[in-house]
Every structure is written in C-alpha cells, then in structure tokens.
Design a binder for these strands. Structure first.
Ligand SMILES: [Mn+2]
Ligand SMILES: [Mn+2]
Ligand SMILES: [Zn+2]
Ligand SMILES: [Zn+2]
Lengths: 146, 146
DNA sequence: TTATTAATTAATAATTGTTATCCAATAATA
DNA sequence: TATTATTGGATAACAATTATTAATTAATAA
C-alpha cells in the first residue's frame, strides 16, 4: 500500500467513524504511517513541530489514544505505564488484560519451542522470548458498558 | 521449592555475588517470592512498610534493579517506560533490545499459528498475542564494557 | 577490636511521562 | 445563521522514576 493510499484510507476511516479529519490528526497520522521505529508521543511531537509549531504534546497524546481506540494505530505493549516485577526468572509467558493491566503467568513448555526466525539471531544476542496474550479479562468484560 | 529454600538460595546467591544481605533486601525479596501478581515497586513498598516503616521507595527501586541485574528477579517487559506507537495494526511480533529499547518488527506468518492454551480462553476475550524477542542488539553489544 | 574504606540506605529534589482541566476555536447540524 | 458538539491549546496536576547527597552500616585490614 502506498502512503497516499494509506492516507486516503485514513480519511475514509475517520469519516465512517464520525471523527473529523483535522490538520493535526492528519499530521500525526502522516508522521506515523511510514515510521517503523515505534515512536513515542514525544518523538512524533518533535517530527511535527516544524509544520505545526503550535501543536501541544497533550494533543498528540489525546489523538494517539483516539487512534488506538479505533484501531487506526496500535501500541507495542499495554504494559508501558510502570515496571512489573516477577519472582520467576525461568522463561514463561503472560496473559495481560489490556483494560486493568492484570498479569497472569502462562507456564506451558510447549510454548518454549517456537522456531526463532534466523534474522533475529544475526548480530543480536537473544536472551529469550515471551508471549503476551492480550485479553479483556472476565472482570473487565463484566464492567464494560454494552 | 519451599519459601524457606528460596530464601536460603537468595542468601547464598547474594554472598556469591558479593552483595550484602541487608534487612531491606531480605524484606523486598520475601515480599516478592510468593507474590504472583507481578507487583509494581509501589505495591512492594506498601507491603513492606508495616515491618520497615523507614524504608524509602527509592530503596525499593534500586534494590529491584540490582536484583534484576543479577537475575534474582525478572521484569515482565523492558518496554515499561513509555508508550510506543505502531502504524501496523495487523498481528505481528517484535525484537526488543533490553538495553536501548529499540523495537524491530517481526512479520512472519508462521508465528501466528501458536496453539493458545485453553485456559486462557476461559472467561477472557482474547484480542491477540504478540511475541517479544528480547535481545541485546548488535550496537549495544559493541558498547558493552567487556 | 579498632580504624579505614566501601557499600548501602534514607531523605529529598528533580526529572520525565502522562492525564486532567478549562477555555477558545472549529466543525457539524438544524 | 444559530446552536450544539467536538476538538485543540495552554497549562496544571499527577504519577513514575531517577539523581543527589549525606548519614548509616557493613566489610576488611591493621
Ligand atoms: Mn510471570
Ligand atoms: Mn510493530
Ligand atoms: Zn481486566
Ligand atoms: Zn540496543
């Protein structure tokens, strides 16, 4: 998909969702669409400031949250707000509730035999891998306003 | 392994590493060893304050970092310091450098066919899963002081 | 044991990342 | 056009983390 097509899709998507396509939103989307560095809000802010000198960081945060809510962009992990410590040091996996950030262990040896793509091992030292099963947990499902 | 055995191992481990076994360190370790909630430093602080009213939150942070450095405890993700946005909304995976927090996409359909353990689906709504390949990247390996 | 040095802790300040508030500006709708 | 809803900007507030520094404690060598 070309960048222009992606932008057109974005515009249509916003209209369908009832979100107005403001210059700020367009700028933020454009800043992200071809950026594969998984930038922080701050990074996007810096990229945009030249064209939009008056935009505030809070707008970037709010806009990205709106985008994420509607599936226009995604976040790499929902566990980005605070460190979470684990007494288990052996490789294992986790169920993560994206609403309440509850974390449950998944200890299942069959998940430790994944075929690691070769290119990951080129130059990097692999320490291990861990699977995040992203869920809305039963408690949070009950709380949801349907 | 019993809790007492774990504590004994911890004490021996510290001695081997040349870390002194202080009451604070012991208390922090004990607070974590049987806690499977993947607590935040703040949670551990609250648990400990009754017995150790003078301990400071900064000590908790530093001690946990020391423990993690020596493999006594682990962190659920190293990407806990800030949100990272992604223009890709399709399921995919990531290489994460635990030193510099660089994130590289891993798009490999063969990794999207993992057998999800049944119990994860009980009550929870599964949104998807994503694998974090934790590495020390080539750049960071060069920087390391060996 | 005591003196010396190194390591650890506590208190606190500073910084960073994020969210809330409030008002003005803009856009959508009647 | 008038009305209402949405959005954005400025700023303050808050939460998480890190840095600084001095006091305390522990380790080690006379
Ligand atoms: Mn765990
Ligand atoms: Mn990605
Ligand atoms: Zn939940
Ligand atoms: Zn790196």
């Amino acid at each position: 998909m070309t960048t222009q097509t992606a932008i057109d899709n974005f515009v249509n998507r916003c209209r369908t969702l009832g979100l107005s396509v403001t210059p700020q939103r367009l700028a933020i989307f454009k800043a992200l669409i071809d950026d594969h560095s998984h930038p922080r809000p701050e990074d996007i802010y810096k990229k945009i400031k030249a064209e939009h000198p008056t935009i505030s960081l809070a707008t970037i945060y709010k806009t990205l949250e709106t985008f994420e809510k509607h599936g226009i962009v995604s976040v790499v992990t929902h566990l980005h707000n605070t460190v979470r410590y684990d007494p288990i040091t052996e490789p294992h996996h986790h169920v993560v509730c994206v609403k309440c950030n509850k974390i449950i262990d998944v200890i299942d040896p069959s998940l430790n035999t994944i075929k690691v793509p070769e290119h990951i091992l080129q130059g990097n030292e692999l320490l291990g891998y861990s699977i995040h099963f992203n869920v809305i947990c039963s408690e949070c499902r009950l709380k949801e306003t349907n």
